[in-house]
């Protein structure tokens, strides 16, 4: 079927995100089948989130509608439409970790950080997120700080790790 693409707005140089970085990513993946997911991953890796303002640029490059791109972004829990804290702390909420006290660990971390799952600490340092299995089920409960896994996690171990990594964004 021939698509009647509605015209998207022209690129605005004042858009609140790095349009050149996005353009580079779109160029890198040009004409590669099924490229929307890797494009969104790369944009999030580069900008920390997928700015809603970047959707027209993505859509135009892929000859898709904004609706299609928005539908994909909103389906996957990994993709963020707003910046997160400086570091992401994922706490496993699945069965194996439940069997080893993850419910209490989560509650204690929420109290320690002063924010709930899906929220960011007041100082913008840490975003606390639920995750459903990290594949670290033989050392439950497990968490991940950035890309760094931590097994048999305790509040003390997690906060120590957060403090130790205070200078680096993993």
């Amino acid at each position: 079927m021939k698509r009647q693409m509605a015209t998207t707005r022209d690129l605005d140089p004042d858009l609140p995100y790095d349009t050149e970085a996005v353009a580079g990513i779109l160029e890198h993946w040009r004409d590669i089948p099924g490229n929307l997911m890797p494009i969104l991953h790369d944009i999030q890796a580069a900008l920390g989130y997928v700015p809603p303002e970047s959707v027209p640029q993505i859509a135009r490059a892929l000859n898709q509608s904004r609706a299609e791109v928005h539908g994909v972004i909103s389906f996957y829990h990994d993709f963020r439409s707003a910046p997160a804290g400086r570091r992401i702390l994922k706490v496993c909420q699945a069965e194996s970790c439940q069997a080893m006290g993850s419910r209490a660990l989560t509650a204690d971390l929420e109290a320690e950080l002063g924010c709930g799952l899906g929220e960011t600490t007041g100082d913008g340092e840490v975003t606390l997120e639920p995750v459903y299995c990290l594949g670290l089920c033989a050392c439950s409960p497990a968490v991940m700080i950035g890309d760094e896994p931590l097994g048999r996690a305790t509040v003390a171990a997690v906060t120590a790790r957060l403090a130790a990594k205070g200078e680096v964004n993993p």
Binding site: M1, K2, R3, Q4, M5, A6, Q64, S65, A67, E68, H70, G71, S74, F75
Partner: peptide, 14 residues
Amino acid sequence: EEVQGTFALTIQGR
């Protein structure tokens, strides 16, 4: 999508 070819609508979220 199929009748009009506009692709203006989507399902948001899941």
